[in-house]
């Protein structure tokens, strides 16, 4: 296998109260791709991410980062975390500083960068996320969407090889959600591996290059979205729906309106192009 940046073998994690959040999970994440981890509420997405970042130590199983097993001594953890950034589900808990600027500078400075270099990265992250004009504000003065953007900026400024976003669009309105997804797309275009979690099949279908479906802490399916989402029953069992676009495509195909041998489209425009008699 070439270029799996993360590999997980037989990972199990249970919380102190006995909840088995991950059960014998094995999967691989290809480098440089946009990856969506899909699962219903409580399926273990957040737990998986916390394990990947070394914040939770699994009871059993191994995590490999570029073929190298993750170890839990301080040095290895720091090295891992300088390359793998995670944006938490709730931005409120991620923000601690008294201004946006200091918040974003926290990560780069922890990497031991020089002041000049740190400054460059802070500016870059602020501009990329469109939070430049908020830099003097205190976090409690920001709206939820702005907090989310700042949280993303604070991780981006570390220039991680892998960026993990835990439900990056949760609670955002359509416009903000689109902007965040565009931003994640841009970041991925620069070569960063971007992993998000979501329970929104439409979002995963249109955005991801690789989909991983979890159910109750177990791997249900993984692969390119066109493949994974074909299995409607499996998705329903996981508490997820089929993407609307794919449903439409399958319906139209069943009725014979679609050109022969056409592959499942990823955008509405692509679907329109596949219709018989269309111009």
């Amino acid at each position: 296998m070439d270029g799996n940046i993360i590999e997980i073998r037989d990972l199990s994690y249970s919380y102190p109260d006995g909840t088995l959040a991950l059960q014998g999970l094995s999967l691989a994440m290809p480098e440089g791709k946009r990856i969506a981890v899909l699962g219903a509420n409580g399926s273990g997405k957040t737990t998986l991410f916390l394990c990947l970042n070394g914040l939770l130590r699994p009871r059993q199983g191994k995590i490999f980062y570029r073929g190298e097993e993750l170890r839990y001594d301080k040095k290895s953890l720091l090295r891992l975390r300088s390359r793998l950034g995670i944006v938490f589900q709730d931005p409120e808990i991620q923000l601690f500083a008294s201004s946006v600027r200091q918040e974003v500078a926290f990560g780069p400075l922890n990497l031991g960068l020089e002041e000049r270099e740190a400054l460059v990265r802070v500016e870059e992250a602020l501009c990329l996320t469109g939070t430049k004009d908020l830099e003097q504000k205190a976090p409690h003065m920001l709206s939820y969407g702005q907090k989310k953007q700042v949280a993303i900026a604070s991780v981006l400024a570390m220039r991680p090889e892998i960026l993990i976003g835990d439900e990056p669009t949760a609670w955002l309105d359509r416009q903000h959600a689109c902007r965040v997804m565009e931003l994640l797309h841009e970041i991925s275009a620069k070569g960063t591996t971007v992993i998000i979690s979501t329970h929104d099949a439409d979002l995963a279908y249109s955005w991801a290059e690789e989909v991983i479906v979890l159910q109750k802490g177990k791997l249900l399916s993984s692969g390119p979205p066109e493949h994974v989402f074909q299995a409607g029953e499996m998705l329903a069992a996981a508490g997820l729906g089929q993407p609307l676009l794919l449903q439409l495509f399958l319906l139209l195909k069943g009725k014979g309106y679609i050109l022969e041998g056409a592959a499942a489209p990823r955008t509405p425009e692509a679907l329109a192009g596949l219709l018989k008699g269309g111009s």
Partner: peptide, 24 residues
């Protein structure tokens, strides 16, 4: 709970016990 989560958030950004700040 929040302080625990915040600690995790700091750790994930290579927190080592100090809060360096950018000179302004």
């Amino acid at each position: 709970y929040r302080s625990q989560m915040m600690h995790a958030g700091l750790l994930s950004r290579c927190y080592e016990g100090t809060f360096p700040t950018l000179k302004t």
